[in-house]
């Protein structure tokens, strides 16, 4: 056990599984880097350096740099998964799903169903998402609700370093296709992470804070913000339960409904665009199954329905902030019904 960054946690998970299982290969643009170039080999290790060091240990046969050609290599990962490998493909930014989505949602996600249960597709797609690095509209989106919508895919949103390592190992050992969303603003966050390999089951929410006054459901980086808000409200005697669902598909509905049954108040924090996102999904879940428990209208804290802007002032206004979350919790507590 030692303190590790989110980046190290992801890297360790890959290393553990590549050592454990020869069928695990990684592929993507610049996952090693420098291939065919006159300078340094293993120059990049991906844009975040997550996969640096894997090529020297496992060789070019299992750490596969690709051309900038997402349709081909994401599809190749799907085909390889259906024929015996356990590929981990890196889609550098989830925004690039636009050039390869067919291979994910029409092919990998549906093999098992279309083939009558006679296919196994142990594919992991790792991808960066989220705003905060001034990367603007085509490199900052939180597109996980689109993947959550697709039957056959599992969707994972690790909110911290410990979560990232255990969930990625679970994803690699899982026999279904998994899309693993890494928030680009979390890579330097640190916490205690075991040195050994471990797994965190999918569909099991994590209750990061417990309190009986309000429930905050948050995803990915927003869990960090929700925890900050819960800690700050505790100083005022307001107790919040913070639920990190960890996976949006499968979703631990019971954890959310049980908590709302206790608190009667719900704030959902979702970095995805506001229409048909996880916030609306969970608000609908609670409206359908826990309407009687609600003491106040559900509040959804999301960005506005706009692309992610560039200028720091604009992006800061765009991203859900701890201040907005706190205001929403105070709002649901003040509501009379």
């Amino acid at each position: 056990m030692s303190r590790k960054t989110y980046r190290q946690a992801v890297s360790e998970a890959l290393r553990h599984e590549m050592r454990r299982d020869l069928r695990v290969v990684i592929m993507g643009e610049d996952v090693s880097g420098g291939l065919g170039a006159p300078g340094e080999q293993d120059a990049w290790g991906g844009p975040q350096g997550v996969t640096k060091g894997l090529m020297p240990e496992f060789g070019r046969g299992r750490v596969l740099d690709t051309p900038i050609s997402e349709s081909a290599f994401i599809g190749a990962a799907a085909g390889a998964a259906a024929t015996g490998l356990r590929p981990v493909a890196e889609l550098m930014f989830v925004d690039f799903m636009g050039v390869c989505f067919d291979q994910i949602f029409n092919q990998a996600a549906k093999f098992r169903y279309m083939f009558g249960g006679r296919a196994v597709t142990p594919l992991v797609i790792r991808t960066q998402y989220g705003a905060g690095l001034r990367a603007a509209s085509q490199h900052s989106q939180s597109l996980y609700p689109i993947f959550t919508h697709i039957p056959g895919l599992k969707v994972v949103l690790p909110s911290s370093a410990y979560e990232a390592k255990g969930l990625l190992i679970q994803a690699i050992r899982d026999d279904d296709p998994v899309v693993f969303f890494e928030h680009k603003a979390l890579y330097d966050d640190e916490e205690e992470v075991p040195d050994e390999a471990y797994t965190i089951p999918f569909g099991e929410a994590n209750l990061t804070r417990e309190g009986s006054d309000a429930t905050i459901v948050a995803f990915g980086r927003m869990v960090k913000f929700a925890n900050q808000v819960a800690d700050s409200l505790e100083q005022d005697g307001i107790g919040c339960t913070v639920i990190d669902p960890r996976t949006t598909s499968p979703l631990d509905s019971d954890a959310i409904l049980d908590s709302v049954a206790e608190t009667g108040r719900l704030v959902v924090v979702d970095e995805a665009s506001p229409r048909c996102n996880m916030a609306t999904d969970i608000a609908a879940l609670v409206a359908e199954h826990a309407f009687g428990a609600l003491k106040a209208p559900v509040r959804m804290i999301t960005p506005p329905h706009t692309p992610v802007p560039f200028a720091p002032e604009l992006e800061d206004a765009y991203i859900p902030s701890p201040a907005r979350i706190e205001e929403a919790v105070r709002g649901v507590l003040a509501a009379k019904r």
């Binding site: 069928r23 299992r62 081909a72 599809g75 190749a76 024929t83 067919d102 092919q107 279309m114």
Partner: peptide
Amino acid sequence: MLGANGIVGGGPPLICGAALSAKVM
């Protein structure tokens, strides 16, 4: 037989993957 395919052009990337499986293994 990795499937007929309802998406025109769906198969070639998949076959790169099947070929990769054969090569790696």
